[in-house]
């Protein structure tokens, strides 16, 4: 009886030592969780999740404070990936808010802009340039289409979200129509 206990304890000690050594020796230098989550987010910085940007939302998800399904522009794809990463079940967001809007780019009507800089302050990625009492404009190549400038603008119909149109330059090949099975 005693021998058995000693043997078991010895085995436990040895295995524990091996495991402990392995955890130090073979430690995987991975990204911290926040950065891994942040990398899965679309970086629109739109705040639709209720956090002031993608990074704060990533921090909230990592700490377990927020659910992984709140990112609307990322859609179910990003939600599923984050849920897999943090190891929680993914539940699709219900309701109309869950539909990601088509990708759009902000445009400022140069005739109505009063040069108040409100949109510049609102833009999370500094995609609007201009100065006080000067007409502002959007650098469309860096605009994420978050739409935060739209409510910030005090003038009616000065900022519009222009949906990105498909042309030959950004057109994509379609999935081949190949269905053997009758569509259920």
């Amino acid at each position: 009886m005693l021998t058995a206990i000693i043997v078991m304890a010895a085995i436990a000690l040895v295995l524990g030592a091996v495991l402990g050594y392995a955890s130090i020796k073979f430690k995987v230098e991975g990204n911290p969780l926040v950065e891994q989550i942040d990398a899965l987010l679309p970086q629109t910085q739109c705040g639709q999740c209720g956090y002031p940007g993608c990074k704060p939302y990533a921090e909230a998800v990592a700490s377990g404070e927020a659910a992984p399904n709140l990112c609307i522009p990322g859609g179910p794809g990003a939600g599923q990936a984050i849920a897999d990463l943090v190891g929680v079940p993914y539940e699709p967001l219900g309701g109309e808010a869950a539909e990601p809007a088509p990708k759009a780019v902000a445009a400022i009507d140069e005739k109505t802009c009063i040069g108040c800089t409100a949109c510049i302050k609102a833009c999370p990625v500094d995609a609007i340039i201009g100065a006080t009492k000067q007409v502002h404009t959007v650098i469309s190549a860096v605009c994420t289409g978050c739409g935060l400038c739209e409510p910030a603008c005090p003038v009616e119909e000065c900022i519009i979200m222009d949906p990105v149109k498909t042309d030959i330059g950004n057109w994509k090949w379609e999935y081949p129509t190949y269905e053997v099975k009758k569509v259920a």
Partner: peptide, 30 residues
């Protein structure tokens, strides 16, 4: 057709990834 579809889908993803990376940097800079 499958390969063309996959290629344009992958290129689109790469573009989005680059755009997201730029947005992240710019937001941090701000």
């Amino acid at each position: 057709q499958y390969f063309r579809y996959a290629k344009s889908e992958l290129m689109e993803r790469d573009r989005e990834k680059r755009a997201a990376e730029m947005a992240r940097q710019r937001s941090e800079m701000k």
